[in-house]
Structure formats: structure tokens, C-alpha cells
Design a protein around this nucleic acid. Sequence first.
DNA 1: CCCTAGCGGTGCT
DNA 2: AGCACCGCTAGGG
Length: 175
Amino acid sequence: MNKTPVFSLAVPSSHGEFLAVYSGKGLCALRIPRRANGKAAVRHGGPCTNEIDAVPAQVKAWHRLTVKALDKALAGQPLGDLPPLDISSGTAFQQRVWQALRGIGRGRTASYGQVARAAGSPKAVRAVGGACGANPIPVFIPCHRVVATTGLGGFSAGLEWKRRLLNAEKLKAAN
DNA sequence: CCCTAGCGGTGCT
DNA sequence: AGCACCGCTAGGG
């Protein structure tokens, strides 16, 4: 059972503690804290099992980018440099969707149908919802920018978060 | 406004 | 293989 090492590191933020998970290829997951208000929170599934000094330099460098970018994101500002995003855990369809999500600019939104088209499966509208829900790197892969034609649509980490993220970047985009 | 049917991918038996 | 989910949507009362 010799598997690739994975490192989980906490990401402090103004709205609670996120958890970043790194594979050998880059950031492979970003967990949003339970509570939108960031008050209590921080019971993410697994503890940060890695001793800080056991973390390779490259992961540390990636983590610095993550911390900074998350801070920007919560402020609705451009993210700047990101670590490489390792989305290899997804199915082919999911990866296509996640890739398409990255094309939605900050402060903009797209419908599930638009994303389905962009991902090359125009009728897989509902499935896009599923792929968004399975997005392992929310915020950086902006699934929060996908909204239903009738309203907000859903968000696995809680609609408060979706609103907050959209709101933050909308205010900035309105400059 | 509230149905309803149709849709495609995913994860379970 | 089958089946029941769904972060959906367009169309029709």
C-alpha cells in the first residue's frame, strides 16, 4: 500500500478555517468550513495529520499561494497565482465541467445549461449540477458562479457560502 | 404561480 | 444489468 503522499494543511481565513489537501501534483481538495459565519466550525473530516516540518518545500510553496489566493477570493479580488490544481480524481465528464467552470469570469455567472454547452454535453444539464456538487476545489474552481435560470440553485457547502462568494465579487466587479 | 416530463451522469445493488 | 437519486429546464396549466 505504497500510495502517493497527501498533505492536509489548515488555511486560516476571515471566515473560518479551510482545509487544503495536496497530492504530488498540486492542490487536490479545498474544504470549506461548516458554518458560513466562521464562528465555531472547523470540524473537517480529517485532522491535519502531517507534522509541519515533514511537509516538502514544494507543498509549502503551493500552500502559500493557496492561503493568499483564498484571502483574495473572500475579498472578491483577483486570485493571483494559484498552485496547480489536481483534478485527476474526477471522471472525464466532471473534469470537463470543472475546466469549463474556470472560464466563468470573476463577478459573472452562468446557468447550468450554459456550462453544459461549454463542456460539450448540451443536454447534460442536471448532470452538471452533480459535477458542480462534486467539485473538489470550490472557490478556486468557481462552482458558486453557476446559477439556475430560476434563481440561485444549490451549493453543497451551503447557500450562505454561495451568496457570500457571489456577493463579495459582485461588489468588487461593480467598481 | 405550481406542476410535469424529460434529461444525462453517478453510485449504488 | 437495473435503478434511484439530483446544485436542472422548458413548457403547460
